[in-house]
Amino acid sequence: MATARNRASFERGFVYLVLLLSAAFFLMPLIAMIFTSLKSMPEITGAAGFENNTILTPPKEPSVAAWGAAWSSACIAVACEGLRSYFWNSVLMVVFAVAISVMLGAVNGYVLSKWRFRGDNIVFGMLLFGCFIPFQIVLIPMARLLGILDIAGTIPGLVFVHVCYGIPFTTLFFRNFYVTIPDELVKAARIDGAGFWSIFFLILLPISTPIFVVAIIWQFTGVWNDFLFGASFAGADARPLMVALNNLVNTSTGTKTYNIDMAGAMIAALPTMLVYIVGGRYFVRGLTSGAVKG
């Protein structure tokens, strides 16, 4: 009896040990980033006075100088104005791309779930396929189309691209959500005299808040974190933050300034981390329902 209990508590200890070690593994890069961003270069390189410092030792003389530099004075290619303007590029791009793709997805999901028509499942399947294509397959023609539309290299151009490839995801979210709303609600509204749009705006929209949060979070993180489209289609003035961050870190001339690199990475990471912390529940639901049908 006692040995059985011993074994059980040993097993529990082992479970906790694995979980805590994993937590350390997942937290380590974040800690290293934050610590490094608050250190001076001598402290990072272990110069005199800092011989025993590692990437995981807390900063001895914490300073936000590197954050300031990353924000407004670090050199990216030839311009030494920091990430600031790119940050606002990203914000502008995200706001419009998210708003448009989420609204379109909501309407699409409404039609595909509540106004079934012949072949609607094929249409849905065709949209769904768009979630999975490797974007490399569309890069060349898209560059051309943006040129034809005269929005090549601009933020509207990037918004357009993100809307096109966001629609499949937002449609999937809303369709799977509206499928769970009883059809009788729509039938009742039709008998009560409501039409296509009044049903959507008066009956369904007021109860769609949860899925809006999911879709907005998903699109926000997706567009904010995008690199491929930004690198392929953005001109010098329209570059989003991720492209600028990569340029800052990987094309710097002279000695690497790790503290500024890490501060830049943190600046780029903070908005989505914040969304994750505030809306974690919805974030997870988005991740999983983006992958599995609802």
Binding site: N225, F227, N246, A265, A268, A269, T272, V275, Y276, L287
Partner: peptide, 8 residues
């Protein structure tokens, strides 16, 4: 980490 960009 899922909230972070691959670039970060």
């Amino acid at each position: 980490p899922m909230a972070l960009s691959f670039i970060v």
